[in-house]
Design a protein around this nucleic acid. Structure first.
Lengths: 155, 155
DNA sequence: TTACTAGTTAAGAATGATTCTAAATAATAA
DNA sequence: TTATTATTTAGAATCATTCTTAACTAGTAA
């Protein structure tokens, strides 16, 4: 069976890049931490466990390459650090985030909620949308005073 | 008549801060460049013209203070630099941005397009929204090949 | 084999944005 | 007045990120 790694390897080859051991180790870390919004430093520390000889600059270069190929999304929550997420396979758009002002948790929303809004923007501002970033800041269900319910699982 | 500066002075006083000459000069620069998305460095260079003795650290501190008081919005387009905009008076929410991938222009959308989306998110994810950030990336009307029309003015 | 080429790497230096430190100054209160 | 507190400047320090250099690797041709 073709694994996710195999498909990423193909994507690299299609763009004339190789899946070097360092790159593969980096991708494996990202696969093992799909929802964790790791910073470059985080990735570096984790990758060092499975490929101790790797350099921080290589991690940065690899993440940049993967971002260019749209295999990962580079995100920025305004804390001065870029974070990297593996993009959902086949997803045309970036997913959205819920950032809790209380506990700092970052939850993800996979659905595209913006279809209607995008139609308005494209028409009204004559702007051809390629991608979007949407983040909500507020209080998550865990931090509500009482009677907080866990939301239904992402559809 | 009460000016914008006067109102900002009151907001500072209400939070036990003073409108020092350096802070006033910084605010004046922001007022003169309302739609320009200035970086801290930009603000510093401009402010130096009207208050040459000011230090860069003071500009950073002032912008941080104004951000805390929600007088300015601190934004981040992912280029490693924070930018600062005076918030529309009375606006509860951040405005949105259209970032052109071609020419780098950043246009603003003042309307709140997200009322419906927010209602869904609050209910579905049990998340109490305080603010949001929405940015579209794409091709602006100026960069379209032909027949590009300037959009209607912001309502 | 040998050389040649292009891509990739590690290490550490360099950069650039931002924050911190220390000493000075200004405003305020007693 | 004195004491206290907030604010400032200048420059040092920090931190994330990028750049530079030289070494290394795989592939290819002779």
């Amino acid at each position: 069976m073709e694994t996710r790694i195999d498909r990423i390897k193909k994507q690299l080859h299609a763009a004339s890049y190789k899946l070097t051991p360092q790159r593969e180790a980096t991708v494996r870390i990202l696969l093992d931490h799909e929802e964790d919004h790791l910073s470059a430093e985080d990735v570096y520390l984790l990758v060092k466990d499975i490929a101790p000889e790797i350099g921080l600059a290589t991690v940065y270069r690899t993440l940049e390459l993967l971002t260019e190929l749209k295999i990962v999304d580079k995100i920025n929550f305004g804390d001065g650090v870029s974070r990297y997420d593996l993009r959902q396979e086949g997803a045309a758009h970036f997913h959205h985030h819920l950032v809790c002002l209380e506990c700092g948790a970052v939850d993800e929303i996979q659905e595209d909620l913006l279809e209607d809004v995008e139609a308005v923007v494209e028409k009204r501002w004559n702007f051809q949308i390629k991608d979007h970033r949407l983040t909500f800041h507020g209080i998550c269900w865990r931090c509500h005073d009482l009677g907080a319910d866990k939301p239904e699982k992402d559809a």
